[in-house]
Design a protein around this nucleic acid. Structure first.
Lengths: 164, 164
DNA sequence: GGAAATTGCGCAATGA
DNA sequence: ATCATTGCGCAATTTC
């Protein structure tokens, strides 16, 4: 009366909650997988190949989970390798992303500085224009400080249609 | 027959995760002493039949790895939780970083556009200035412009950056 | 010292 | 069927 038949565990889900872990396998076969600490030469209690019956009569496709099988071991090893590779790549990617952030930040600062500089240049040029305007006004008109039509001495940013 | 002593850890999750875990696996550290899991006669090459541990030069504090111990189980559970939390955070961080990259990219584009615009404005103003200079040159010579630029009409708003 | 956090590793399910 | 990804647990180590 054991719990045969694996239970439908929750699939991948970041939100997934119910994690019901089914029985790993026949518990005591070769537990040394946990931390890879050691691996003792295991003895198989059940008879191999012949009549398997100690295990729950589940699906057991084709001796897929025969820990003692070479196939299994090989597959595990391959998978372990793949996992390692994948994780390494993932880490690298994260690192690269972080670096990108830094680069972008730098560039951002650079661009802002440039913008500031350009703004200053613009301001200077505008001032020059105003100067000229005054000079002209001096010749033609007395320096009535009243608001003449050509009151250029205002720093309105006409023309700079700065969107947003 | 096999009375599976399914140990159900009553965990208290903030998420309400129901973790039903039954006998993860023998950690190979404690060979025979395991609680009655199954009748599998697991043999180990080096068995601490009465002596000390042979395989790992572990400390074996006292009841550190007592698998069936409450202490152990509790610690494991806590650690699992912590691991989960840590990983979640890590993932979140990576995601945030990626998002930041996107934002910075956007802002970069915006800034570049602005730079372009300013450059255009500057160009226009320069052209205008040259034109006027020519006109003036026709009439009078520019005075000895030795002073700083634009100090005649100091509306120099060097800092009017449209900060949102 | 002890608890939480981080990290490396392996396993199993699933995706491509 | 093979490899890649992902979630999870264990254990060692680090950090606080």
């Amino acid at each position: 009366m054991s719990k045969q038949l694996q239970q439908k565990i929750s699939n991948t889900d970041q939100n997934g909650v119910s994690v019901i872990q089914n029985q790993p396998h026949n518990s005591a076969l070769n537990p040394a997988g946990a931390a890879g600490l050691q691996q003792v030469p295991q003895l198989v209690p059940v008879s191999p190949g012949g009549g398997g019956k100690a295990t729950p009569p589940s699906k057991m496709k084709k001796s897929m989970m025969d820990k003692n099988s070479d196939e299994y071991r090989q597959r595990r090893e391959r998978n372990n390798l793949a996992v390692k590779k994948s994780r390494m790549r993932s880490k690298q990617k994260a690192q690269d992303t972080q670096q990108r952030v830094n680069e972008l930040k730098e560039e951002n600062e650079r661009l802002e500085a440039k913008i500031k500089l350009l703004g200053k240049e613009l301001s200077v040029l505008k001032d020059l224009f105003l100067e000229h305007a005054h000079n002209l006004a001096d010749n033609v008109q007395p320096p009535a400080s009243g608001g003449g039509p050509g009151d250029l001495c205002n720093n309105n940013n006409s023309g700079s249609n700065s969107s947003q």
